[in-house]
């Protein structure tokens, strides 16, 4: 239990909250997905700090799962939603 790490986690939480503006008004779809990826990394950092702050070493495993699955959504987005949407224009690479 350490209050200092909890304060650090508390500082990182508004970073997530303000990053939401980019999701709401991102001009392209990739901007929104990039913000989701930043959320994932911030979440990992908050979990690491909270595991010391709340004195619970199990939270490191949750951060590990987050880090494993963070890239899955972005890669699905690029391969399926973004890349695939221009591929069906009769083979035109644009």
């Amino acid at each position: 239990m350490s209050w200092m790490h909890t304060i650090f986690a508390l500082i990182l939480l508004p970073a997530i909250a303000t990053g939401m503006f980019r999701i709401l008004r991102g001009p392209t779809a990739a901007d929104r997905m990039m913000t989701a990826q930043l959320f994932g990394t911030c979440g990992v950092a908050i979990l690491l700090l909270l595991s010391t702050g709340m004195g619970n070493p199990v939270l490191l495993d949750i951060a590990l799962v987050f880090a494993l699955l963070a890239a899955l959504a972005t890669i699905t987005f690029v391969r399926r939603t973004w890349h695939g949407s221009n591929k069906r224009n009769h083979g035109n690479p644009l």
Binding site: T35, A36, F39, G43, N56, L59, D61
Partner: peptide, 27 residues
């Protein structure tokens, strides 16, 4: 995309309520 971010914050909420098993499943 907002739903993905919402799931992430839900995992933080489970951690805060001392339910790390649920947080692992949610993550």
């Amino acid at each position: 995309v907002l739903f993905i971010s919402f799931g992430l914050l839900m995992a933080l909420a489970w951690v805060r309520m001392r339910a790390p098993d649920v947080a692992l499943a949610e993550a």
